[in-house]
């Protein structure tokens, strides 16, 4: 039931070899405002945030709700709303850029993404979990991530049922193990 979503797309190593662009974690910055998720075949044009900031936000999102069978693009889609919001809200833009800069500073020389173990990144998140920045990230993510219909099958949730006649003929009482 739980299947990895490894959508096709650009092979990351090949891409790196030919483009010479900067890889940040699982993401990659292409040009001034573009972020690619090569293994996901997915990318986004950023309106306001620095691509490096978005790349770190995606990792932070995964560290907040770490589902190892869920691809980065779901986290990226959830984070994209922040970029949209920051495009016409200077205060929000500053909060996000400053929030990520603070994470990098706390992480030391190689920044948040330079910390290889989730445990070490999460320790930093615990230090800031009462901040407005963290709460804004988590609060939007709990809807922005789990409300993606494309993600529901990965949790075994079938979503809307009325158009299929409900479950009366489709297994509402089909378990046999109890």
């Amino acid at each position: 039931m739980m299947t990895n979503d490894k959508a096709g797309g650009v092979n990351r190593r090949d891409f790196l070899a030919t483009s010479g662009k900067t890889a940040i974690g699982a993401a990659m910055v292409v040009g001034a405002g573009t972020l690619l998720l090569p293994t996901q075949g997915w990318g986004m044009e950023l309106k306001a945030l620095k691509p490096e900031t978005m790349a770190t936000m995606i990792q932070m999102a995964r560290d907040i709700y770490p589902h190892d069978h869920i691809g980065d693009k779901f986290y990226a889609k959830a984070m994209r709303a922040h970029d949209d919001g920051a495009a016409d809200d200077a205060e929000k833009l500053a909060m996000l850029e400053n929030g990520i800069a603070d994470l990098d500073k706390r992480a030391g020389e190689n920044g948040y993404l330079g910390l290889g173990w989730e445990e070490d990144r999460v320790a930093i998140l615990h230090d800031i979990e009462d901040s407005g920045f963290f709460q804004a990230m988590r609060g939007s993510l709990v809807v922005g991530l789990y409300n993606q219909k494309a993600l529901w099958p990965l949790f075994g949730y079938e979503g809307a049922s009325a158009h299929k006649g409900g479950y009366i003929e489709r297994g509402f009482d089909d378990i046999e193990w109890v």
């Binding site: 039931m1 739980m2 560290d63 907040i64 709700y65 770490p66 589902h67 069978h69 989730e118 999460v122 979990e129 988590r138 709990v142 809807v143 991530l145 789990y146 409300n147 993600l151 529901w152 949790f155 075994g156 949730y157 979503g159």
Partner: peptide, 28 residues
């Protein structure tokens, strides 16, 4: 609850691997 409301209400404000592990078992 469905996945969206389970995420919102299972343990409001909770995050991290314990919370995610619970969500991973949603259909169980």
């Amino acid at each position: 609850l469905g996945v969206p409301f389970m995420a919102a209400f299972l343990n409001p404000g909770a995050w991290g691997r314990q919370f995610a592990a619970a969500m991973d078992t949603y259909d169980h």
